[in-house]
Design a protein around this nucleic acid. Structure first.
Lengths: 226, 226
DNA sequence: CGGTTGCTTGATGTTATTCAAGTGGGGTGG
DNA sequence: CCACCCCACTTGAATAACATCAAGCAACCG
């Protein structure tokens, strides 16, 4: 969608500043009363819910271009946490501006909402995987999904991409124990789904199984340019 | 939020018609190219994703007042199915109107988006439960969550409410097998979490366990009036 | 050099699934 | 009215999947 000069002006005004955050730092904390709205320029982050006893569920991952904190900007205090997985560079918006976007820039508001719906679709995928698939199926579908997202962003070369998740993140995203995550990971590597090259991953055979192939073929819609 | 007369006019125009659908019928099917937008007047429905081999994951339940199909109205063809759990009465909107709402009624657009974000929050809850909790914990937290939603809608009297889910629905929502769902259900009933009165449920002791109590205390934000 | 961190592996225990058989209520047709 | 079947649900036993416990390894760092 083309933008009017007026919109571009506004986007510039809305951009409050840039921010660099180290890997492992919190971007968002539950009940933060006035959270900011971010867009991710570079790096990976993830959103999660923590239980009182220390368990946590990773709800989704953020890759460059994603919008962080839109739900909270509408609803009020955050109901989840966001943590930087790698070093990230963010662009910050003032949360109070969201309402003004709806008033003055319907097209922009529509696009924001679109991004929110897209994120919900990804959470749906995660729930379906955790609820219905076996450990190996979950893990392979997640690897393939991240691979495809990275590819859509031009972050894949020769089927190789940077894969910053540690075993712990996979475990918390897939609802598996750390030990079993590691065992499943090795099994998939031995089966030939991917090769590990340091912190990078080469996805050699994304259609390994029929279930997996189905996952691989299904395309997710492209985002609008923001 | 108060509505201007102009907005009320528009809402009337947008309401295309009413619809009655029998229990078990589909409201929404994956890849339906031009799905409608609904609001639920009465009855229960649920949204789910189906896998090629017949397994399915229920993503969330709809109770009276909920908006059905907002994500699809933005994104395009539906990526999920919706089925009526009981007989339902719906109000239908034309999907093409959504964009006009953004243009002409920013306040309304904001509220729609708010409802969408609220729905995502519920899916987050589901994913956290399925990923991190034991069968008994999942089931009790889901029962309590539905109880609280029903209560918020005035559908609870003397701690009793209509509970139209069959075991099969619980199983598909919680990511459990049918057999184990039934065993867990009986265990919780014997433990005194609830009493079964035909198709109705009396939630006698929602704070049964500490984990459960935490779930029970935490309040979800009220919806805006639509 | 000792300590820490992320990962790995094997042995054992628990949870949930699968298989199989059976119950009871609600409908239908004789 | 009864015989029959169908469906949702129930129960027990066998099996598979996953969690937990425990020990060890390699890389890194002070």
């Amino acid at each position: 969608m083309p933008k009017t000069p007026k919109e571009v002006d506004w986007l510039q005004q809305l951009k409050q500043g840039q921010l660099r955050v180290a890997a492992g730092a919190d971007l968002y904390r539950v009940n933060d009363p006035a959270p900011e709205l971010f867009t991710l320029y570079s790096g990976w982050a993830f959103r999660y819910r923590a239980l009182p006893d220390g368990r946590r569920q990773i709800l989704n991952f953020y890759l460059p271009g994603d919008l962080i904190g839109f739900q909270s900007s509408l609803i009020g205090p955050a109901e989840y946490n966001v943590e930087a997985l790698t070093e990230v560079h963010l662009c910050t918006f003032r949360r109070a501006q969201v309402w003004r976007i709806f008033q003055d820039f319907p097209e922009l508001a529509f696009q924001l909402t679109w991004l929110g719906a897209r994120e919900e679709g990804m959470v749906d995928d995660g729930l379906t995987a955790v609820g219905q698939l076996s450990a190996a199926e979950r893990m392979s579908s997640m690897i393939v999904a991240l691979f495809k997202r990275a590819r859509g962003l031009g972050l894949v070369e020769d089927d190789i991409f940077e894969f910053p998740l540690r075993r712990e993140h996979l475990a918390d995203a897939l609802g598996l124990s750390l030990v079993h995550t590691i065992k499943t990971w090795s099994a998939l590597r031995r089966a030939g789904l991917f090769e590990q090259l340091g912190s990078r991953l080469k996805v050699s055979n994304p259609r390994l199984t029929p279930t997996l192939a189905a996952f691989f073929e299904q395309e997710r819609r492209q985002r609008p340019i923001l």
